[in-house]
């Protein structure tokens, strides 16, 4: 029973990490429709009501769909990545303990957390790509300001938004107990949904100063502003000089807290 492992120790870590990704791909593939419904239905409905119905009945400007689209794209990416880390971690650590077999794999425990964040970010990106397609269908290609020129910048902000979602999800997933899941949605996700400058440009809040300042606490604000700046450069935006460091700080900060939380939950 002591056959030596055929893989050298260094490569074994990478083999294990690859296997963690493959496991998540298989599980996501198996639950693909549930996954898509979970992450796309809500932003799609928002886009339809605010980008199509309200302008259609004259209660919003026809331009509004163009302003909304970058925000909805960011919201989809962030929330998908956030839920893809937070939900499984809360359930795994608090209840099913399914993650234990992966924690016993021959790779550092932090890599298991890193895989969770990266895979969740990838799911966020996939959801974002699908949202662009659905956006073209719902509000028309003219309202989805994606061109060959801004494609790279849009992708870059998408990656940053996905990493923000993944790191915030890692933090929540390791801090929240299963019985607090409902509270997490009510007290954390709902405020994040409405204070992230996804439905309105930050500069437009000038007359509502206290709320404008409040939105600065939400990392989604910076992702929305960055995304809107590259998709609709004609509007006023938070300057990239603030946006990029803020996104970097959010990823680093929540990533660090999440990694510590993960280590604490993984090794008693």
């Amino acid at each position: 029973m002591t056959a030596a492992s055929p893989v050298p120790a260094r490569n074994l870590r990478w083999a294990a990490l690859t296997a963690l990704f493959r496991r998540d791909i298989v599980v996501t593939g198996r639950e693909l429709w549930a996954f898509l419904a979970q992450v796309l239905l809500q932003p799609l409905a928002t886009l339809f009501i605010f980008g199509r119905v309200l302008p259609g009945i004259g209660m919003a400007s026809p331009q509004y769909a163009r302003i909304l689209m970058p925000g909805i794209l960011v919201l989809t990416i962030v929330l998908t990545a956030l839920q893809s880390t937070a939900m499984p971690l809360v359930i795994d650590f608090g209840w099913t303990k399914e993650i234990e077999d992966r924690l016993l794999a021959p790779l550092p425990v932090a890599w298991v957390a890193l895989e969770k964040v990266l895979f969740a970010a990838a799911r966020g990106m996939v959801a974002g790509a699908m949202m662009i397609g659905l956006g073209i269908v719902v509000v028309g290609a003219h309202s989805v300001s994606l061109t060959a020129a801004n494609l790279g910048a849009v992708a870059a902000y998408a990656v940053l938004a996905a990493l923000v979602g993944g790191s915030v999800g890692l933090t929540l997933g390791t801090l929240v107990q299963p019985q607090q899941l409902n509270m997490m949605f009510a007290l954390i996700l709902t405020p994040m949904l409405f204070t992230g400058c996804t439905q309105y440009p930050w500069a437009s809040l000038n007359h509502l100063r206290w709320f404008q300042l409040l939105t600065l606490l939400n990392p989604i604000t910076y992702a929305s502003e960055g995304m809107r700046a590259v998709m609709m450069p004609g509007l006023n935006h938070l300057n990239a000089v603030y946006v990029l460091p803020a996104l970097g700080a959010a990823i680093a900060g929540f990533g660090w807290i999440g990694m510590r939380g993960f280590a604490r939950r993984a090794v008693g």
């Binding site: 055929p6 490569n11 493959r22 496991r23 298989v26 198996r30 639950e31 077999d101 016993l104 021959p106």
Partner: peptide, 18 residues
């Protein structure tokens, strides 16, 4: 791993170990 079949549980465990 409740998201996997019994056989997949074994195969992925093996994969985690290279």
């Amino acid at each position: 791993d409740r998201s996997l079949t019994a056989r997949q549980n074994l195969l992925f465990h093996a994969a985690y170990h290279g």
